[in-house]
Nucleic acid binder design. Structure first.
Lengths: 169, 169
DNA sequence: CCCGTTTCTCTTGATATCAAGAGATATGCT
DNA sequence: AGCATATCTCTTGATATCAAGAGAAACGGG
């Protein structure tokens, strides 16, 4: 078994024999796998009429539970985009009929963004398709190895969990 | 030990009990870890006066070995950007004195992009710093576990290695 | 040898993002 | 109470990217 990174590591070893590039064996694979996943997710979402950024926002609302309603501020912190970007995203999602803006009764500066019935259907269908795809990608890997992999990745990820707010997918 | 994804999985389980979202345990961690890595790499490169995209291009040239020279076409396939983007990148790298364009003696349509001495110094320093950071990130993990992790990731990555051309970082 | 096709780089136009800031309301300290 | 500061959303201007295509040179079959 051989992948992109084996070639990468070989080339660096030849050109930079002074450096021990062994960390790339793990971390370069993480980055490259993530790039492939991004492309695949885009393809899956496209089949369900959603852009990745649309899924991100709708999934955040869906995951928050009834009444599927959050402020733009919370949404932008959860999805790690700027306020200008979130305004633009909500505009387009509202135009598409997937969310609706309501004034916030508790804060006259603010609005609340609520998932529409169609928005919920779309994000539910897209998530199901995503999980199906991801399951097929892991298909060959036995449960014990999946758990080992998840555990090892968690040990790398958890120290990076800063005072950051929320989640994404 | 607990990370972002544990919370994510919990929330989905509550809202979508019909779905088995177990694949997220692995693949969501891959994506989120990659996002953290991107941010950290950006910080490391900034200390060495490089943007991530600058490092991508310069590293590609550096890794190709002497005379550190490639066509724009090969570079754009290697870094997975469009030709317009690569033209723009080479323009800016040339203005910064990190690469130089030369006519290709073997093909009058083409040019060759060559790493300058300063370009090489910069990319070498940035790579050293990157590896140092990545080593610190893996710091706690014993070599045997690193290898297990690399092996598991390779088994996911290698089927995705399509008839794609080259490499990146 | 010639002409259609491919390959190569660069240009153009559209778009999503970010950084910075504006305007309105809420909050808290004295 | 009152005033300064913080918070919230949206606007503006700049930028990097992509998709599509133009122009020039190379290639290859008849």
């Amino acid at each position: 078994m051989r992948d992109e990174v084996d070639g990468l590591v070989e080339a660096w070893r030849a050109e930079r024999p002074d450096l021990d590039i062994e960390p790339l064996q793990v971390l370069s694979r993480v980055s490259r796998l993530a790039r492939h996943l991004d492309r695949a997710r885009r393809a899956v979402f496209t089949e369900h009429g959603l852009e990745p950024w649309e899924f991100d926002v709708l999934a955040e609302l869906r995951r928050s539970g009834p009444p599927y309603e959050m402020s733009p501020g919370r949404l932008l912190r959860a999805t790690l985009v700027t306020s200008g970007t979130m305004t633009n995203r909500i505009d387009r999602l509202a135009t598409a009929g997937l969310v609706r803006r309501h004034p916030d009764p508790a804060d006259k500066r603010g609005v609340l963004v609520r998932l529409s019935a169609e928005g919920q259907e779309r994000v539910d269908a897209a998530l199901s398709a995503l999980i199906e795809y991801e399951e097929s990608l892991l298909g060959e890997m036995p449960p014990a190895e999946r758990e080992r992999l998840a555990t090892l990745l968690r040990s790398l990820l958890s120290p990076l969990d800063e005072p950051a707010p929320e989640a994404g997918v």
